[in-house]
């Protein structure tokens, strides 16, 4: 299978420090790319560089074999981003938040009720998000992944604030997504147990 997402010669310097140099990877549909390393090792920066939020010092990221710089909009339309911060508005309700998201990227043809059911958030639909716990807000953010119809999931520490069930749920959802031919790039400092082909990048 040809690589859907790949990078070559990726070098990133932040301030005075070189986070990584000449980094390469190639990811095919169904594969998980795991970015590992301790705090401050540059996992998040690498994830942001792949997503195009950071411009690397040199090197490039390719999507479908074409450099991302030449097709930024297409690439952004093919990914969904789950960062450290949930990216949800505390003043708005779950439904208002997720409604807004539907205008940002292609939406999957799924039954929203079953998605909420699965994430265990259906009872919270009409509450403003600031009244929910951090873990519940995290679950709401997960709905973004399930509602989007995009191949690439990019996740930064998706297990933060989640209980054991929540962590298991993230792994299950990711495995399903990969089984359906999706791709996933995940930065995590915890052990990840996902039944799928995994590639690892360990940052010092």
């Amino acid at each position: 299978m040809t690589a859907k997402l790949s990078a070559k010669g990726l070098t990133l310097i932040r301030g005075e420090r070189c986070l990584f140099e000449d980094l390469e990877f190639a990811l095919s549909p169904g594969e998980l790319l795991l970015l590992e390393g301790g705090n401050g090792s540059g996992k998040t920066s690498l994830l942001r560089a792949i997503g195009g939020l950071l411009s690397p010092e040199s090197g490039e990221v390719l999507w479908n074999g074409v450099p991302v710089q030449q097709q930024r909009q297409e690439f952004r339309g093919a990914l969904v981003w789950l960062a450290h911060k949930t990216g949800l508005k505390g003043d708005l309700t779950l439904l208002e938040n997720l409604n807004f998201e539907t205008s940002l990227r292609p939406q999957a043809d799924v039954d929203t009720v079953s998605v909420y059911e699965r994430l265990g958030i259906s009872r919270l639909k009409s509450l403003p998000l600031r009244s929910l716990s951090a873990g519940q807000q995290r679950r709401v953010a997960l709905a973004r992944l399930l509602l989007a119809d995009v191949p690439l999931w990019m996740m930064d520490e998706p297990f933060t604030n989640l209980d054991r069930d929540g962590r298991k749920l993230v792994m299950e959802l990711t495995a399903e997504h990969l089984e359906n031919g999706g791709l996933c790039v995940m930065a995590a400092h915890q052990d990840v147990d996902i039944a799928a082909p995994v590639k690892r990048i360990v940052l010092q």
Binding site: T102, S103, L104, R105, P128, V150, N180
Partner: peptide, 30 residues
């Protein structure tokens, strides 16, 4: 579940949704 040609939301939808969300937020914090 992943379709080959997903339908991208139009730009007017994006414009409308962003404006609407910020107005909604302002409404909740007058």
């Amino acid at each position: 579940m992943i379709s080959d040609k997903p339908s991208q939301p139009g730009i007017f939808r994006g414009l409308y949704a962003t404006t609407r969300r910020d107005l909604l937020l302002a409404w909740k914090r007058p």
